[in-house]
Write a protein that binds this DNA or RNA. Structure first.
Lengths: 213, 213
DNA sequence: CTCTTTTTTGGACGATCGTCCAAATTTGGT
DNA sequence: ACCAAATTTGGACGATCGTCCAAAAAAGAG
């Protein structure tokens, strides 16, 4: 009889391990310069294993993107939801700043995958799904703030969340691109302008917290 | 005697032609999926030609990036500088909107090259140079507006230009990523929020034109 | 232990990559 | 027309890619 009901969890665990290792390898070298042999060597397994757990390289990439969603986005959702409501913008900025400096390679990989999704249609659905989750995450955060302190948005919720998302995306990209030359400068500008722009999304008549300390 | 003084211009013309064809091919397939044979076939020349005019593939890529700078950025500079000062935001948005819909593949390539520059150090200098030009372009535009209608910026020029750059970058990326699903939605949100955010960069006491029509 | 199933290995396969070069061709000065 | 330089060709080279597979090794049920 089949042993799959018992060994299935073990197989999935190994599959998850391989996805994790592959993500690390991919974050280091980038989509264009990584090979299945790199991933296999980095994971300490043979090359054939990857084709045993994943049908093809494209299959592995899709699993990596999906895993990235469950990891990074879930963590971000938890941190944002659990963030204190008083001085929320400071804590929100702190989350972004910490993620930007600590998980730099992960974010670089995220932009890489997004760009690849523009060329490879097979990646488009997964990437779009993550972006939708991030978009709704930002929108829920905005709702949470407006509900708490009675403030209101200057534009409709969808537009405000979309704008804030684009701004954060652009600021992250800028901060990562200016690596050695003026990285700290970009970070400080990030810190200076981010709360300012966010504040402008709200109506000036409301009592929004703007402190960043 | 060497004929180089005369044929040099001809050689440079062919070099420029190859760069142009290579840019087109690269914009279609993306950095990760393009080969020198693709470029050669698309250009109607043999493979060896590319190594006759370019030392290596990396050399060709650098030439492409440099050519991209001279093309797109120069055009943008001309259009922005020549833009009318009255209702400047409307014309500025029009330039961005038209470039976003017409030169879509070019912009996609630009994000691709920026991401690759994060992995390949050899590309970093050229990409950073273009970004600096775009940054100063935005800053000059802001200066031009403030000088003309006597308004003033809410934050320092550097920070304002940096923020505006990041916002445009993020909006472009968002608009391109949401291709078939809600592309027009992203465009309309772009149109709705962009002048709003730009306006918030200026002090509310000034008489800034906010119309987008 | 025995046997079936699952897992893993190491290598082979054809395709394609960037690179390189000798020979053929074209070009332009004299 | 002649010749030397510049240009172009087509193919070869080794390396590496994703894919695939037969056989060995490991694992668990009986």
């Amino acid at each position: 009889m089949s042993r799959s009901p018992l060994s299935q969890t073990k197989a999935e665990a190994k599959r998850a391990f391989l996805i994790e290792q592959a993500t690390l390898c991919l974050a280091q070298k980038g989509y264009a310069h990584v090979s299945l042999r790199d991933i296999a060597k980095e994971s300490g397994v043979s090359l054939g294993i990857l084709h045993y757990y994943f049908a093809s390289k494209e299959d592995l990439l899709l699993a990596i993107i999906s895993s990235y969603k469950e990891g990074f986005v879930a963590e971000l959702e938890r941190e944002v939801v659990e963030a204190p409501l008083d001085d929320w913008m400071a804590s929100f900025f702190a989350v972004l700043h910490r993620s930007l400096t600590r998980d730099k390679d992960q974010h670089r990989l995220w932009y890489d995958l997004q760009v690849q999704a523009m060329y490879v249609p097979a990646f488009h659905a997964q990437v779009s799904q993550i972006r939708n989750r991030l978009h709704s995450l930002i929108m829920r955060m905005l709702e949470r703030v407006t509900d708490a302190d009675g403030s209101s948005l200057a534009v409709e919720k969808e537009a405000a969340a979309s704008t804030l998302y684009s701004l954060i995306d652009g600021l992250f990209l800028q901060s990562m691109l200016s690596e050695s030359s003026d990285h700290k400068n970009a970070i400080s500008q990030f810190e200076q302008t981010f709360p300012f722009i966010v504040q402008s999304l709200f109506l000036p008549s409301s009592n929004v917290h703007t402190s960043t300390k």
